[in-house]
Nucleic acid binder design. Structure first.
Lengths: 276, 276
DNA sequence: TATCATTTTCCACATTGCGGAAATCATCCC
DNA sequence: GGGATGATTTCCGCAATGTGGAAAATGATA
């Protein structure tokens, strides 16, 4: 008897009269295909069919069928020489329209540019999603040594400038939930990895208005960030200016923090937030 | 008897013994879901369920089921107030990894930056896909008046700088196929809308090495572009510098063209192309 | 409150997606 | 070159899954 993966709905096994179907059910093949797509996106230089099939727990034939369908629609590409699957053009085209729908990016860009010019450092914009930050846009500074933070990248909240800025304006209940869900993995020796020190740190952030990430995410990197609010008063995003420790020295933190805070406030204001 | 959309394979209707299945068949529900996703991406500010269902030719119940599944995986978002579907974060995250896999972007960036600094205009990188150009990356200049060309946007080849640069290095056979497939829609009064003048124009492009888009795509916009080749000698992309007519005056075309050509050659060289 | 226009849920039906197995294609090692 | 290994691609019978009509909920409009 062929073993079938049962639906999420978890109907009693054995019983399969038509009426036993769960209610909140979704399209299986689509969920599986998107799972494959996510895995491909996670793999830095592509993944092979067998790897992918194993990762998502599907027989290769099924995975192959889904992949070729995705390929037909140009959401994935198959490199015949290397026999690796990578993300396709159409996924890029579709994905890029995300920022178009969020007027946030359009509103923020001029302020980000201004901040880059005043502060002289690369400026990033990130939004909150599922307890993580996602970089949306970047204005690069013209220095030789620059910070890399590709739009579309996810970063943890507990150990990044934008993350701490966001958390500083998050309710304690949400904070606990996020920490519980994602934990506090250590990325560098300076990463804060316990809730209590983090809460103390967030208290400091609230006091000055901006967060400082001091090599907590990557060695040699300093980052200053402030939260952005929407018209309901909720945090929706954060702006940051970041650069190498060698350039953003101790004395520059306060003035740069002021500039970042100004930019964040200006963007919040455009979003319809009432200044506090 | 419920009417079912038949598969691509086009087996004889009525006959549905197991053996009648076509060979090149794909997963229907996935194709439909991606179709919906594409439509959502095309709609500037989101689309309603009924609109979407109508556009892709599906009953609303089916469209709704697919959409909620896409939503569950965060590939689309549903705005409850406006009752509109828009592209979701995960589509953005996945789509952004496309540029990571193409080392082209990484190789090109430094040269693009250099070109922007030398030329003082916004620099774009676009690749060829299905007879169109897709903007991949942009380095903005610091002028107040800047050109907008969002990465992920598709543009026609016959009426854009990058497009003409690409076509200038395309075989005549491919050129005919592309023109036949996409036509030559008029975007401005200056758009070239007939094959013969275009071929003459491409001859001029080949002679000087760079293409000039003189308000053919958008009024007031001038754009200078050159093709990028890979190690096999095929065109894979183009770089461009673009700005307002008022700034890129007649006398600047030649020097700027030289800079653009230099950048394109440098990137081609990094891609392993042998200079001609 | 009544009417219309959407969205969401429900459910029987059979089409469509599934996966084991076999065939094909590449690559490596003797 | 042969043949063994590991991957991809095709095949095909089975029934689970996706489908779409219709009805129920929800919301907007008058």
């Amino acid at each position: 008897m062929p073993q079938r993966t049962v639906r999420k709905g978890a109907s009693q096994p054995g019983r399969n009269t038509a009426t036993s179907r769960g209610n909140g059910d979704q399209v299986q093949s689509l969920i599986r295909a998107l799972g494959l797509l996510n895995r491909i996106a996670e793999a830095p230089d592509g993944a092979s069919l067998t790897d992918l099939a194993q990762q998502v727990g599907l027989p290769t034939s099924t995975a192959h069928r889904l992949l070729t369908t995705l390929e037909q629609e140009r959401y994935v590409r198959f490199n015949h020489e290397q026999r690796l699957w990578t993300v396709g053009v159409q996924a890029f085209v579709t994905g890029c329209t995300f920022t178009k729908t969020r007027s946030l990016v359009a509103l923020a860009r001029p302020h980000m540019r201004h901040l880059m010019e005043e502060g002289g450092e690369t400026v990033n914009l990130a939004i909150v999603d599922e307890g993580q930050a996602v970089y949306l846009a970047q204005i690069e500074c013209s220095q030789m040594m620059r910070v890399f933070a590709r739009p579309g990248t996810r970063v943890p909240l507990h150990c990044s400038g934008v993350g701490k800025a966001i958390l500083s304006a998050t309710s304690d209940k949400s904070l606990s939930r996020i920490l519980h869900q994602h934990g506090m993995p250590r990325l560098t020796v300076k990463t804060i990895t316990a809730p209590l020190p983090l809460r103390e740190e967030l208290e400091r952030v609230r006091a000055v208005g901006y967060a400082v990430d001091d090599e907590e995410h990557a060695v040699g990197l300093r980052c200053i960030a402030a939260p952005i609010f929407d018209e309901t008063g909720d945090v929706v995003a954060a702006v940051s200016a970041s650069g190498p420790m060698a350039r953003i020295v101790e004395e520059r933190i306060a003035p740069l923090g002021g500039l970042v805070l100004d930019a964040a406030r200006a963007i919040s204001a455009e979003m319809g937030a009432t200044l506090r």
